[in-house]
Amino acid sequence: MEKNQDKQQIRRYLNGAYNSHEAKEMAESLLRADKEGILDDLADEVWEEALSLPEPSDQIKEQYKKEAQHLLESMQSQKRSFTKRILYMATGIAASILVIWGAITMKQQWDIQHITVAQATTGFGEKKELTLPDGSQIILNACSKLEYPSQFIGDKREVQLVGEAYFKVQSNPEQPFLIQTSDFQVEVLGTEFNVKSYAHDQIQSVEVENGKVQVTLPEDRIRLKKQEQIYLNKQSGEYSKLKRSENKVAAWRNGALHFYQTPLTDVAKELERRYHCKISFRQGEVFENLISGEHDNQSLESVLESLHYICGINYEKDGNQITFYK
Protein backbone atom coordinates (compact mmCIF):
# COMPACT_ATOMS: atom_id res chain seq x y z
CA MET A 1 0.00 0.00 0.00
CA GLU A 2 2.76 2.41 1.00
CA LYS A 3 4.59 1.60 -2.26
CA ASN A 4 1.57 2.71 -4.35
CA GLN A 5 1.21 5.90 -2.28
CA ASP A 6 4.88 6.79 -2.86
CA LYS A 7 4.44 6.24 -6.60
CA GLN A 8 1.38 8.52 -6.65
CA GLN A 9 3.22 11.24 -4.74
CA ILE A 10 6.12 11.14 -7.19
CA ARG A 11 3.68 11.37 -10.12
CA ARG A 12 2.02 14.42 -8.53
CA TYR A 13 5.47 16.02 -8.11
CA LEU A 14 6.35 15.39 -11.77
CA ASN A 15 3.05 17.02 -12.78
CA GLY A 16 3.77 20.06 -10.56
CA ALA A 17 0.80 19.36 -8.25
CA TYR A 18 2.12 19.57 -4.70
CA ASN A 19 2.28 21.87 -1.70
CA SER A 20 5.10 22.45 0.84
CA HIS A 21 3.89 19.70 3.15
CA GLU A 22 3.63 17.29 0.22
CA ALA A 23 7.10 18.28 -0.97
CA LYS A 24 8.52 17.25 2.39
CA GLU A 25 6.64 13.93 2.23
CA MET A 26 7.83 13.49 -1.34
CA ALA A 27 11.47 13.81 -0.26
CA GLU A 28 10.93 11.03 2.25
CA SER A 29 9.16 8.97 -0.46
CA LEU A 30 12.13 9.37 -2.78
CA LEU A 31 14.43 7.90 -0.16
CA ARG A 32 12.17 4.88 0.23
CA ALA A 33 11.55 4.66 -3.50
CA ASP A 34 15.26 4.44 -4.23
CA LYS A 35 15.62 1.57 -1.81
CA GLU A 36 12.50 -0.34 -2.98
CA GLY A 37 12.98 0.06 -6.73
CA ILE A 38 9.87 2.28 -7.13
CA LEU A 39 11.77 4.76 -9.29
CA ASP A 40 12.67 2.04 -11.77
CA ASP A 41 9.03 0.83 -11.89
CA LEU A 42 7.76 4.38 -12.34
CA ALA A 43 10.25 5.09 -15.14
CA ASP A 44 9.04 1.97 -17.00
CA GLU A 45 5.39 3.05 -16.62
CA VAL A 46 6.06 6.58 -17.85
CA TRP A 47 7.97 5.17 -20.84
CA GLU A 48 5.09 2.85 -21.75
CA GLU A 49 2.58 5.69 -21.44
CA ALA A 50 4.72 7.89 -23.67
CA LEU A 51 4.79 5.22 -26.38
CA SER A 52 0.97 4.97 -26.35
CA LEU A 53 0.47 8.71 -26.74
CA PRO A 54 -0.24 10.10 -30.23
CA GLU A 55 2.54 12.10 -31.93
CA PRO A 56 2.25 15.77 -30.90
CA SER A 57 1.23 18.37 -33.49
CA ASP A 58 3.63 20.94 -34.95
CA GLN A 59 2.09 23.60 -32.70
CA ILE A 60 2.78 21.54 -29.57
CA LYS A 61 6.32 20.78 -30.76
CA GLU A 62 6.92 24.52 -31.21
CA GLN A 63 5.62 25.12 -27.70
CA TYR A 64 8.03 22.46 -26.37
CA LYS A 65 10.92 24.19 -28.14
CA LYS A 66 10.00 27.52 -26.57
CA GLU A 67 9.74 25.94 -23.13
CA ALA A 68 13.11 24.21 -23.63
CA GLN A 69 14.71 27.49 -24.78
CA HIS A 70 13.26 29.29 -21.78
CA LEU A 71 14.68 26.59 -19.51
CA LEU A 72 18.16 26.91 -21.10
CA GLU A 73 18.10 30.70 -20.73
CA SER A 74 17.10 30.34 -17.10
CA MET A 75 19.96 27.93 -16.49
CA GLN A 76 22.46 30.27 -18.22
CA SER A 77 21.17 33.20 -16.18
CA GLN A 78 21.72 31.26 -13.00
CA LYS A 79 25.21 30.32 -14.22
CA ARG A 80 26.02 33.95 -14.98
CA SER A 81 24.67 34.96 -11.59
CA PHE A 82 26.89 32.35 -9.93
CA THR A 83 29.88 33.56 -11.97
CA LYS A 84 29.15 37.13 -10.94
CA ARG A 85 29.04 36.10 -7.29
CA ILE A 86 32.40 34.37 -7.69
CA LEU A 87 33.83 37.49 -9.36
CA TYR A 88 32.42 39.71 -6.63
CA MET A 89 33.96 37.43 -4.00
CA ALA A 90 37.32 37.40 -5.79
CA THR A 91 37.20 41.17 -6.18
CA GLY A 92 36.38 41.55 -2.50
CA ILE A 93 39.23 39.27 -1.48
CA ALA A 94 41.65 41.12 -3.78
CA ALA A 95 40.46 44.44 -2.38
CA SER A 96 40.99 43.17 1.16
CA ILE A 97 44.49 42.01 0.28
CA LEU A 98 45.24 45.42 -1.25
CA VAL A 99 43.94 47.17 1.85
CA ILE A 100 46.06 44.97 4.14
CA TRP A 101 49.12 45.35 1.90
CA GLY A 102 48.54 49.09 1.75
CA ALA A 103 48.25 49.29 5.51
CA ILE A 104 51.49 47.33 5.97
CA THR A 105 53.26 49.52 3.40
CA MET A 106 51.96 52.67 5.06
CA LYS A 107 53.17 51.44 8.45
CA GLN A 108 56.60 50.65 7.02
CA GLN A 109 56.74 54.08 5.38
CA TRP A 110 55.58 55.65 8.64
CA ASP A 111 58.28 53.77 10.56
CA ILE A 112 60.96 54.78 8.03
CA GLN A 113 59.88 58.43 8.07
CA HIS A 114 59.88 58.53 11.86
CA ILE A 115 63.22 56.79 12.37
CA THR A 116 65.84 59.14 13.72
CA VAL A 117 69.59 58.62 13.63
CA ALA A 118 71.18 58.58 17.05
CA GLN A 119 74.84 59.35 17.60
CA ALA A 120 77.17 58.36 20.40
CA THR A 121 80.60 59.99 20.65
CA THR A 122 83.59 59.94 22.97
CA GLY A 123 86.35 62.44 23.59
CA PHE A 124 90.03 62.11 24.52
CA GLY A 125 90.64 59.52 27.21
CA GLU A 126 86.95 58.64 27.36
CA LYS A 127 85.10 55.33 27.06
CA LYS A 128 81.33 54.98 26.80
CA GLU A 129 78.90 52.08 27.13
CA LEU A 130 75.55 52.02 25.37
CA THR A 131 72.74 49.63 24.44
CA LEU A 132 71.24 49.67 20.95
CA PRO A 133 67.47 49.30 20.22
CA ASP A 134 67.92 45.55 19.60
CA GLY A 135 69.63 44.99 22.95
CA SER A 136 73.17 44.80 21.54
CA GLN A 137 75.79 46.23 23.91
CA ILE A 138 78.58 48.54 22.73
CA ILE A 139 81.66 50.02 24.37
CA LEU A 140 83.17 52.98 22.52
CA ASN A 141 86.87 53.72 22.82
CA ALA A 142 88.30 57.24 22.93
CA CYS A 143 87.64 59.71 20.07
CA SER A 144 85.06 57.45 18.41
CA LYS A 145 81.62 57.93 16.90
CA LEU A 146 78.80 55.45 16.35
CA GLU A 147 75.66 56.26 14.38
CA TYR A 148 72.63 53.99 14.62
CA PRO A 149 68.86 54.23 13.97
CA SER A 150 66.31 54.73 16.73
CA GLN A 151 64.87 51.36 15.70
CA PHE A 152 65.99 48.57 13.39
CA ILE A 153 63.50 47.70 10.63
CA GLY A 154 63.85 45.74 7.41
CA ASP A 155 66.14 42.80 6.80
CA LYS A 156 69.29 44.14 8.49
CA ARG A 157 70.63 46.10 11.44
CA GLU A 158 73.16 48.64 10.23
CA VAL A 159 75.40 51.07 12.10
CA GLN A 160 78.22 53.43 11.10
CA LEU A 161 81.50 53.48 13.01
CA VAL A 162 84.40 55.89 13.03
CA GLY A 163 87.02 54.94 15.61
CA GLU A 164 87.02 51.85 17.79
CA ALA A 165 84.28 49.88 19.52
CA TYR A 166 83.67 46.55 21.17
CA PHE A 167 80.41 44.90 20.12
CA LYS A 168 78.31 42.30 21.90
CA VAL A 169 75.59 41.74 19.32
CA GLN A 170 72.22 40.16 20.10
CA SER A 171 71.65 37.11 17.91
CA ASN A 172 69.02 37.44 15.18
CA PRO A 173 69.56 35.22 12.09
CA GLU A 174 66.67 36.94 10.32
CA GLN A 175 68.30 40.37 10.67
CA PRO A 176 72.10 40.39 10.29
CA PHE A 177 74.09 43.12 12.03
CA LEU A 178 76.30 45.28 9.78
CA ILE A 179 79.03 47.71 10.80
CA GLN A 180 80.04 50.12 8.06
CA THR A 181 83.42 51.83 8.23
CA SER A 182 85.17 54.01 5.68
CA ASP A 183 87.17 51.08 4.29
CA PHE A 184 85.38 47.83 5.08
CA GLN A 185 82.18 46.22 6.32
CA VAL A 186 81.70 43.73 9.14
CA GLU A 187 78.67 41.40 9.10
CA VAL A 188 77.56 39.23 12.01
CA LEU A 189 74.49 37.38 13.26
CA GLY A 190 75.32 37.50 16.95
CA THR A 191 78.78 37.51 18.48
CA GLU A 192 81.41 39.50 20.44
CA PHE A 193 84.21 41.31 18.64
CA ASN A 194 86.23 44.51 18.35
CA VAL A 195 86.44 46.86 15.36
CA LYS A 196 89.12 49.52 15.01
CA SER A 197 88.82 51.97 12.13
CA TYR A 198 90.13 55.46 12.88
CA ALA A 199 90.10 57.78 9.89
CA HIS A 200 93.76 58.82 10.11
CA ASP A 201 95.31 55.53 11.28
CA GLN A 202 97.27 53.41 8.84
CA ILE A 203 96.34 50.11 10.50
CA GLN A 204 92.75 48.97 11.02
CA SER A 205 91.62 45.75 12.63
CA VAL A 206 88.82 43.35 13.50
CA GLU A 207 89.24 40.95 16.44
CA VAL A 208 86.75 38.21 17.35
CA GLU A 209 86.28 37.12 20.95
CA ASN A 210 83.30 34.78 20.40
CA GLY A 211 81.31 33.59 17.42
CA LYS A 212 82.03 34.37 13.77
CA VAL A 213 82.17 37.49 11.61
CA GLN A 214 82.62 38.28 7.95
CA VAL A 215 84.79 41.19 6.86
CA THR A 216 84.11 42.54 3.39
CA LEU A 217 86.90 44.50 1.72
CA PRO A 218 86.75 46.23 -1.67
CA GLU A 219 88.36 43.22 -3.35
CA ASP A 220 88.12 40.40 -0.85
CA ARG A 221 86.01 38.75 1.83
CA ILE A 222 87.46 37.23 5.00
CA ARG A 223 85.72 35.13 7.63
CA LEU A 224 86.95 35.16 11.20
CA LYS A 225 86.08 32.93 14.13
CA LYS A 226 86.84 32.97 17.84
CA GLN A 227 90.31 34.32 18.73
CA GLU A 228 91.09 35.31 15.15
CA GLN A 229 92.03 38.82 14.01
CA ILE A 230 92.66 40.64 10.79
CA TYR A 231 94.97 43.66 10.47
CA LEU A 232 94.49 45.90 7.44
CA ASN A 233 97.13 48.30 6.16
CA LYS A 234 95.37 51.18 4.43
CA GLN A 235 98.58 52.45 2.87
CA SER A 236 99.75 49.21 1.24
CA GLY A 237 96.35 47.50 0.90
CA GLU A 238 97.76 44.35 2.52
CA TYR A 239 96.15 42.43 5.36
CA SER A 240 97.22 39.75 7.85
CA LYS A 241 94.96 37.16 9.43
CA LEU A 242 96.17 35.85 12.80
CA LYS A 243 95.04 33.57 15.60
CA ARG A 244 95.78 34.42 19.21
CA SER A 245 96.57 31.82 21.83
CA GLU A 246 95.32 34.02 24.68
CA ASN A 247 92.18 36.05 25.15
CA LYS A 248 93.35 39.65 24.70
CA VAL A 249 90.60 41.01 22.46
CA ALA A 250 89.96 44.72 23.04
CA ALA A 251 92.58 45.00 25.78
CA TRP A 252 91.85 48.74 25.89
CA ARG A 253 88.65 48.00 27.84
CA ASN A 254 90.84 47.24 30.84
CA GLY A 255 93.22 50.14 30.25
CA ALA A 256 95.92 48.14 28.42
CA LEU A 257 97.62 49.05 25.13
CA HIS A 258 98.14 46.37 22.48
CA PHE A 259 100.06 46.76 19.22
CA TYR A 260 100.93 44.37 16.41
CA GLN A 261 103.47 45.60 13.85
CA THR A 262 101.94 49.03 14.28
CA PRO A 263 103.70 52.02 12.67
CA LEU A 264 105.04 54.50 15.21
CA THR A 265 102.79 57.18 13.75
CA ASP A 266 99.73 55.08 14.68
CA VAL A 267 101.15 54.44 18.15
CA ALA A 268 101.50 58.20 18.59
CA LYS A 269 97.84 58.75 17.59
CA GLU A 270 96.77 56.03 20.04
CA LEU A 271 98.63 57.74 22.86
CA GLU A 272 97.11 61.11 21.90
CA ARG A 273 93.59 59.67 22.09
CA ARG A 274 94.26 57.84 25.34
CA TYR A 275 96.15 60.53 27.26
CA HIS A 276 94.82 63.68 25.57
CA CYS A 277 98.31 64.83 24.61
CA LYS A 278 99.91 66.12 21.40
CA ILE A 279 102.77 64.14 19.85
CA SER A 280 104.94 65.39 16.98
CA PHE A 281 108.07 64.13 15.23
CA ARG A 282 111.24 66.16 14.92
CA GLN A 283 111.37 67.79 11.53
CA GLY A 284 113.51 66.02 8.96
CA GLU A 285 113.59 62.70 10.80
CA VAL A 286 111.90 59.58 9.35
CA PHE A 287 110.59 56.86 11.65
CA GLU A 288 109.89 53.44 10.18
CA ASN A 289 109.55 51.60 13.48
CA LEU A 290 106.86 48.89 13.73
CA ILE A 291 105.75 48.38 17.32
CA SER A 292 104.47 45.06 18.70
CA GLY A 293 103.56 44.25 22.27
CA GLU A 294 101.21 45.03 25.11
CA HIS A 295 101.55 47.54 27.91
CA ASP A 296 99.40 47.25 31.02
CA ASN A 297 100.70 50.35 32.83
CA GLN A 298 98.21 53.22 32.47
CA SER A 299 100.83 55.93 32.96
CA LEU A 300 101.87 57.90 29.86
CA GLU A 301 105.39 58.33 31.25
CA SER A 302 105.71 54.56 31.67
CA VAL A 303 104.69 53.95 28.05
CA LEU A 304 107.14 56.58 26.78
CA GLU A 305 109.96 55.02 28.79
CA SER A 306 109.14 51.60 27.36
CA LEU A 307 109.36 52.98 23.81
CA HIS A 308 112.71 54.54 24.65
CA TYR A 309 114.34 51.44 26.14
CA ILE A 310 112.84 48.83 23.79
CA CYS A 311 112.75 50.71 20.49
CA GLY A 312 115.40 53.40 21.03
CA ILE A 313 112.93 56.26 20.53
CA ASN A 314 113.84 59.45 22.37
CA TYR A 315 111.29 61.99 23.48
CA GLU A 316 110.94 65.43 24.97
CA LYS A 317 107.91 66.31 27.10
CA ASP A 318 106.71 69.82 27.80
CA GLY A 319 103.33 69.70 29.55
CA ASN A 320 101.08 67.77 27.21
CA GLN A 321 103.37 68.42 24.21
CA ILE A 322 105.65 65.49 23.30
CA THR A 323 108.28 65.31 20.56
CA PHE A 324 109.80 62.06 19.29
CA TYR A 325 113.32 62.15 17.92
CA LYS A 326 116.20 59.80 17.19
Rank of each mutant, 00 (worst) to 15 (best):
I38T: 08
A94P: 09
L232Q: 03
H276W: 08
K226D: 01
R80V: 13
G102P: 07
D155A: 00
L242Y: 09
S96Q: 11
P54E: 13
E49L: 04
E288K: 04
S236E: 11
K156H: 04
D41K: 10
I179G: 03
Y239E: 02
F324R: 04
N233Y: 11
P176W: 02
F287W: 03
P149S: 06
K84N: 09
I279Y: 10
R80A: 10
G123S: 14
I279M: 10
Q151F: 09
Y18F: 13
H295V: 07
K61N: 15
S74A: 13
H21W: 06
L178M: 07
Y166H: 12
L140Q: 13
V159P: 04
A268Q: 08
K84G: 06
S150K: 12
D44T: 04
A250L: 05
I310L: 12
T265V: 10
F281S: 01
H308L: 02
E246P: 00
A43Y: 14
H258V: 08
I115C: 00
Q9N: 06
K79C: 07
Y198G: 01
K241L: 04
S197T: 03
I230L: 14
P176Q: 05
L30T: 14
L146A: 05
Q160M: 09
W110R: 01
E228Q: 14
H21N: 10
L161I: 06
Q202N: 02
T191L: 00
L257T: 03
C311D: 15
S171M: 12
Q204Y: 03
L271Y: 02
N15P: 01
A33Q: 09
Q109H: 10
R85D: 07
S150V: 09
Q151Y: 10
K168M: 03
I153S: 02
Q204T: 04
L14H: 02
L14R: 04
G125H: 04
Q76P: 08
Q283F: 11
A165V: 07
Q180Y: 14
F152P: 00
E246K: 00
Q137G: 07
E270D: 06
D201R: 05
R11F: 05
R11I: 14
T91C: 11
M75L: 13
E294Y: 02
K127M: 07
D40V: 13
G211I: 00
L304G: 13
N194L: 01
S20L: 12
L140I: 13
E67R: 12
A165G: 03
Y315L: 04
N4Q: 13
E28T: 08
A43Q: 12
E158G: 06
